[in-house]
Design a protein around this nucleic acid. Structure first.
Lengths: 167, 167
DNA sequence: TCTATCTAGTTCAACATTCAAGAAAAGGTC
DNA sequence: GACCTTTTCTTGAATGTTGAACTAGATAGA
């Protein structure tokens, strides 16, 4: 059963189906694995950890809420809840934005930074063990290109502008 | 090939970091995209849709709960809640297992099958458009191999038994 | 200025997920 | 059979996510 190029619904080829299953399978297991690793070692889910990482890399360890949400690929609503929780943990605090009274900065606290420094090595180990230690250098390069392409195609804005051959 | 950290923390190379970011980025966007597509067109999240697909492919459209959970890579608890919801929608029903009185079969109803048949073409389109339409045949093959390796490495138990070359 | 519109961020309610605890049946051993 | 362990599945509470509605401040045009 392969694709029919004319008329009715087009299905995936056998190979595509198998690749899709492997993709779902691997990404599900990976996310579960890292969520558990971080819940155990850092007391928060993977995405929350990612927020702290973003802040730690930002100038002065702070970022506007909307920008942080955009960079972390989550909604502003979800970010509001997440920051509220991280604030309760003492790892982040909110700060009013001087230039725009509507705005808030999320700021990584010293405690937050320490926590990150403590848990980063374990997390990096987990990532390397689950992914990079198992792939050849060629596969790593390949994976990078493939993920770039996929991400570009799903980007909210004007992404198709970069991919005219899909029109 | 196992990694044992010798001495201080080992970090990722610049290339690995970039690949990892692209991976997170792409997989997050993909999952969000499909979740929204299916919520809109089928009234349920991606994982629930996957459960119905599994049932549709099983003999007599039914499967033991534990087996279904294993195949879908979710906990039994999560599956219990999910099936309860799908049951409320009329797409699945539970049935006692004749051979094991502890057991339950999840059974795809006719309504469930119809719903699946209705929404499958759109979902396949979404997958193809987001992934396969953007990759070369070589990249598709590559992605398949890479995801197999990653999944195998994260498989709960004894998965490595099938993959001696990873030891 | 007055008004309409847009943007930043939060809140609420409905829903989904997790983890720990539990009930019930099956299996193993004496 | 009696006992202990394991397996199967469910439940409930705590937590996280979603989408829509909302407030307050910014912006643009007459």
């Amino acid at each position: 059963m392969t694709t029919t190029s004319t008329g009715g619904p087009r299905w995936l080829t056998d190979e595509e189906q198998s690749v899709w299953r492997a993709y779902l399978h691997a990404t599900t297991l990976m996310e579960d694995h890292l969520d558990r690793q971080l819940q155990r070692d850092a007391g928060m889910p993977h995405i929350y950890y990612g927020l702290l990482v973003q802040l730690s890399q930002a100038p002065r360890h702070r970022k506007r809420m909307t920008e942080l949400a955009k960079d972390a690929k989550i909604t502003r609503s979800r970010l509001s809840h997440a920051v509220a929780r991280l604030e309760k943990n003492g790892w982040v605090r909110r700060e009013e934005c001087p230039s725009d009274k509507r705005g808030q900065n999320a700021v990584l606290t010293d405690d937050g930074y320490e926590m990150l420094a403590r848990s980063a090595p374990g997390h990096v180990d987990a990532v390397r063990h689950a992914m990079f230690a198992r792939l050849t250098p060629g596969q790593v390069a390949s994976l990078g290109e493939i993920m770039q392409v996929i991400a570009a195609g799903l980007q909210p804005e004007g992404a198709d502008a970069d991919l005219p051959w899909l029109r």
